[in-house]
Design a protein around this nucleic acid. Structure first.
Length: 334
RNA sequence: AAGGAUAACCCGA
């Protein structure tokens, strides 16, 4: 093992990271416990003339990638005890490993240990991990405190992702209006809501049946040229439709359609149905054309709705024409 | 030089 470790350090010195990493992998597979592996790597580090500590980072990475996150934590802590520090990026990989196994308290503990009592400066990835953990622990007060603290003396410029994490957490906990407030404050921090911010809020609002506000947000994002996801758009359109606001729902499809986005087929079919019933056939036909243009995979149900409507109006010729198009499109009549 | 981050999507329980 000692020769392995010496070799690792020298490979790292020559920037041969990939071989160094696979060498470490074989060391890990020997099943030694992480502190003794660390001792070995540390002993050969001291003996060698190389001064890059990146070999330790690779060791940590290897543990994380082998889903041995807790072992990676041992190495990080051992390094600190020996006065060595991994790169911030490496620590962040460990933090996300911990999040994946839902050890949120450990994320907070490691954050304190590594960043509160050293010269290491957390970056936005690290803050995102901490905020995420606080949200998962339902401690939104502390999450907000942490953000204000980081804004003042965090040493790095917070980006929109951090706020998106908080917004998502609040929405998931049903605190949608707080989430909306956070978004409103982004401007004062020199940030702009992005597609994730908007989609998260839109879906959060839909989940608590606030379709009107969701609609306003979609309007706003479209003004900024941000295209809502199919999922977000579908939720709002279907919500408005179920509230009986079929006209508004249709207007939204029309508007967003110009940006190339359509609701999913389910929602479109429901809209066809509602338009035929409440708004007359013209709009339904227009929607149907849009669905064809946008390449939505129209199914038998979509055709049946149109055919049925023509039949009910006694326009059998039209119905047969649509039936013909259906056959041409290769769809089995049902 | 590396599989370091947030919605949705997907898959499994």
């Amino acid at each position: 093992t000692t020769s392995f470790c010496l070799l690792v350090h020298s490979l790292v010195q020559s920037k041969l990271y990939w071989p160094a990493s696979s060498l470490l992998q074989t060391v890990l597979e020997r099943g030694e416990n992480p502190s003794s592996v660390f001792q070995n790597v540390f002993a050969s580090y001291k003996r060698s003339v190389f001064n890059s500590t990146y070999g330790f980072d690779l060791l940590i990475q290897n543990y994380v990638q082998s889903r041995r996150v807790l072992d990676s934590v041992v190495v990080v802590k051992s390094m600190k005890e020996c006065g060595l520090f991994p790169e911030v990026r490496t620590i962040s990989a460990v933090l996300y490993g911990l999040i994946k196994i839902r050890r949120f308290e450990m994320v907070l503990g490691l954050f304190d240990e590594m960043f509160m009592s050293s010269k290491l400066v957390p970056d936005s990835y690290v803050y995102a991990a901490v905020i995420r953990s606080l949200c998962e622990l339902n401690d939104y007060d502390r999450a907000k405190e942490m953000i204000s603290w980081a804004e003042k003396n965090g040493g790095c410029k917070l980006n929109v992702v951090i706020y998106n994490v908080l917004i998502h957490g609040l929405c998931k906990s049903g605190r949608v209006w707080e989430a909306v407030d956070i978004k409103k404050m982004l401007g004062f921090r020199g940030l702009r809501a992005d597609v994730v911010t908007y989609c998260t809020l839109v879906l959060g609002l839909c989940r608590v049946d606030e379709f009107g506000s969701a609609l306003d947000l979609v309007d706003e994002m479209v003004e900024y040229g941000i295209v809502p996801s199919e999922e977000a758009l579908s939720s709002v359109v279907d919500g408005m439709r179920r509230k009986g606001e079929v006209g508004k729902a249709y207007g939204l499809i029309d508007k967003v359609g110009k940006l190339g986005q359509m609701p999913n087929l389910y929602v479109c079919n429901a809209m066809l149905q509602s338009l035929c019933k409440d708004e007359g056939l013209e709009k339904a036909k227009t929607l149907f054309m849009q669905m064809e243009e946008k390449g939505l995979l129209i199914n038998d149900i979509s055709y049946n709705i149109i055919i049925d409507t023509f039949c009910k109006r006694g326009e059998v010729d039209e119905a047969i024409a649509v039936f013909g198009r259906m056959i041409n499109a290769g769809i089995q009549p049902t």
